[in-house]
Amino acid sequence: MKTGIKIALSVAMLASLSFGGEQFAMSDADRAMYAEMSENNPADIMVADGEELLGYMGGDEGLAKYLGVSEDDLPTYIAGFPRYIKKFDMVVGIDQMIQAMMADGGHKPLKLKSGNMFSLLAYVKSIANGEKINIDVNANPQMKEAYALGEKTFMTKRGGRGLSCNSCHSPDVVGRVLRTQPLPDLGANGAKAAATWPAYRMTKSSLRTMQRRFQGCMKNALLKVIPIGSKEMVALEVYLTDKAKGSEISIPGLKR
């Protein structure tokens, strides 16, 4: 009985989505105006902030040294995160590597969900701007496992409405518009989202990371929110970063 109601609700929700081109969809010219705004992205200030913060830990050079790569190879290496790091026996995002670097340097690590960490993450990922995402989900069993867990997290229907990430972000709903916004196709290969997070979110007037965005989406779709940096969350990032493999990194992004 209960399941019946859940299914009915999600069908109703899908029915309320309209196709692009209908009355409240924005025109291409309007969208172009918003795209132009990335020229002066308020998050550029946070990225500059992140650079300053990293400066206290040795800057790019210190980071490269900690990650065990040369400064020249740093951008390409960053473009491959999340990665399996043997030292921690975990698949981790760059933010977790920054935390580890702080701890190993004798500092109290910043929280993953703190604003300063978002700025640091945005700066560090922006080092890889212009590089193509080169995550390798077949590099080792741990990455394979993370990818599988990420896919499972993406596909699992849960919460009050029985929705999964895939319910709104699968190829089936591409081109559909939810309250003026075309739903981004995150499930298909070639989805570019991962290349443009961290990003400035105009709705929140602040810098948000990809995992933070997942949380917002989960909250609004009535799914229990998964903590940033948890195994599932990193796995979800692995899964979606793989979908964006080959896309050129351009940080910070600018989102509605």
Partner: peptide
């Protein structure tokens, strides 16, 4: 308070 001046080109 953080600010930034950008010049293009």
């Amino acid at each position: 308070r953080k600010s930034l001046i950008k010049i293009k080109p």
